[in-house]
Each structure stands twice: as structure tokens, then as C-alpha cells.
Design a protein around this nucleic acid. Structure first.
Length: 287
DNA sequence: CCACAGGTGTGTC
DNA sequence: GACACACCTGTG
């Protein structure tokens, strides 16, 4: 990949596995908006970023300095996707899914924002989640410009009222989970370093101390904010895909997570993303 | 009106 | 431990 700076933009030439629609609409991030020109805009790490791909060249409206400081890691650009895909190509169904979703990347997002976003996501849908996350940023986070706000810090969100979260952010019964989790994190009751480095079962146990974080939400957070690629989040779609294409019978969700990690190993999280995207787009297992 | 949507917490066996 | 069941809200 070659990086160059041109007219206030950073251009990435030869960045592989980079299809914006697949990256931003596969359910891992909730603050990306499609623009009329086909580009996508987000707010992340306190910055507003627009991403456009023109003739295979990725255009980011940022500086080299900011790219190196934030976006290189955010977009997971140092990972060798070719070899990861190669390692997962031992199995035909997944191979098809990886071709179908060849432009997917797993983003490395902000831990706190990811924790709150996925607490909100439980038993909900993307439209609703996005509204809630954007409301929380606008209401409790610092303004960046007229139309964008960064996601609040744990301290800022810990002061939010559960009533406002329910009535204005429309997060429903998740209101108290959000405030309590923000309080626990701002009180230093969550060991972030442990989440990054401990063995996966220890990390899961630590993260599930937070109210509103069960097995599925936990695995999403570890995968999307802590680079724990061995995580295998099991939602209804992955359940259907695994039952339909791998297991051949109805199976409890915790068994499916075990099977996913067993079959796909250290890159189970990538397998999950490819299968999820493939399964949902094609409605696998859905009557 | 009812089912369902990217689950979790709680109570019961 | 393995099950039901309730739970906010928007949509079809």
C-alpha cells in the first residue's frame, strides 16, 4: 500500500479488501453515514472523517500525521488480509462467503463507544441503534463542528439521567445499563488492559461484569474494539448460518460459539463477519 | 393485534 | 447449569 498526501487528502493506493459499503454496513459500527456521492462519513476518535474510493484508490480527508496516529490502526491496515483469508480457505462454505464479502475489514474502534453501542444493540436493529448512538453523542459529547459531536467520555455519560436516555435517546430498558456501565468504567472498575491481553475467557469474564453485557455483546466488543479476533459473536443470523451450513440441526447459542471457535480458531471473528454478512444479505436459514 | 428484531437479567427447576 | 419469561421500542 502506498500512502500519499494531496490537496488536504490522504490517498491509499493498493489498499486491499476495502469496500466501504461492506465495511460500514456489516453491523460493526453505527456512526457511518452514506453520502450522495457514494462516500461515507463518520465521527470517530473525536474527528470527522469522509471516505471515498475512486478507481480503487481510497481517499480520506485527513492529514498524514492524523492518518498515522488514528486511521491506520482504525482501518486495520497493517493486517495481512490475504494470509488470514488463505488460512480460512480450508472450508468451502466460508470460502464462498469470503469471496462474497471480500471488501470487509474489521475496524478497531474506541473501546468505550463500542461498549455502549453494543449494549444498546441488544435485541434491537441497526436503524434504532444508530439513532440512539448519535443522540448520545449530540447530547452528552463535546461538539466538533455545527453538525458533529464526538462520543462522550465515561465521565460525561455517567452523569446522564436514565429518564433522558429512555425518553430522548429511546434506548428503552437499556437506559440503566448504559449509565451503570459508564459509572463503573469511569470509576476504574474495568481493567481495559486485561481485555486486550488476558486469555479470552478471562477477558470475557471481566467484560461481562458490566450490566447489559452478556455473551454476544461481549464478543462483539472484544472483536470490534480490542482486536480479539478469536471472539465469535453469536446472534440470530450466525445461529441460522451455523445451523444451516455447518451443524445441520438446532443448537443452543453457547454451543454455537464453542463450535465457531473450534472450527475457525484464532481468526474465528473474521469467519463470523464473513458468514454474518453472507448470511444476512442472502437470508440464509430464514423462511 | 401480533411477531420480530444483531440479548440480557432474573427466577425456577 | 438448563430452561422459560419479561423487557423498551419501531416496523411490517
Amino acid at each position: 500500500m502506498k500512502i500519499e498526501s494531496l490537496e488536504g487528502k490522504v490517498l491509499l493506493r493498493g489498499a486491499t479488501n476495502f469496500i466501504p459499503k461492506q465495511i460500514f454496513e456489516c453491523g460493526q459500527a453505527f456512526r457511518w453515514e452514506a453520502e450522495e456521492d457514494g462516500s461515507y462519513t463518520t465521527v470517530a476518535f473525536g474527528r470527522v472523517l469522509n471516505v471515498k474510493v475512486v478507481d480503487g484508490v481510497v481517499e480520506l480527508n485527513t492529514t498524514i500525521e492524523e492518518f498515522e496516529r488514528i486511521w491506520r490502526d482504525y482501518f486495520d491496515l497493517d493486517r495481512n488480509y490475504a494470509s488470514m483469508i488463505e488460512e480460512l480457505s480450508f472450508e468451502e462454505t466460508l470460502k464462498d462467503a469470503m469471496e462474497y464479502g471480500s471488501g470487509i475489514r474489521i475496524l478497531n474502534q474506541d473501546p468505550f463507544e463500542t461498549i455502549i453501542s453494543f449494549i444498546i444493540s441488544q435485541n434491537s436493529n441497526i436503524t434504532r441503534i444508530k439513532k440512539a448512538v448519535n443522540f448520545i453523542a449530540d447530547e452528552y459529547g463535546e461538539k466538533i463542528d455545527e453538525t458533529h459531536s464526538r462520543f462522550p467520555t465515561p465521565e460525561e455519560l455517567a452523569k446522564a439521567s436514565v429518564e433522558d436516555l429512555r425518553q430522548k435517546a429511546r434506548v428503552g430498558y437499556r437506559d440503566k445499563y448504559i449509565v451503570e456501565s459508564a459509572q463503573m468504567i469511569s470509576d476504574g472498575m474495568l481493567d481495559m488492559e486485561l481485555l486486550r491481553t488476558a486469555d479470552i475467557e478471562t477477558a470475557r469474564k471481566e467484560l461481562m461484569k458490566l450490566p447489559g453485557v452478556g455473551p454476544k455483546v461481549c464478543d462483539c466488543i472484544l472483536l470490534f474494539a480490542f482486536k480479539r479476533s478469536e471472539s465469535f459473536p453469536v446472534d440470530v443470523w450466525i445461529k441460522r448460518v451455523m445451523e444451516e451450513l455447518y451443524l445441520g440441526k438446532a443448537t443452543p447459542k453457547n454451543k454455537i460459539a464453542d463450535e465457531g471457535r473450534r472450527i475457525f480458531g484464532e481468526n474465528a471473528g473474521f469467519a463470523q463477519q464473513y458468514l454474518f454478512y453472507y448470511g444476512r444479505e442472502n437470508k440464509v436459514g430464514k423462511v
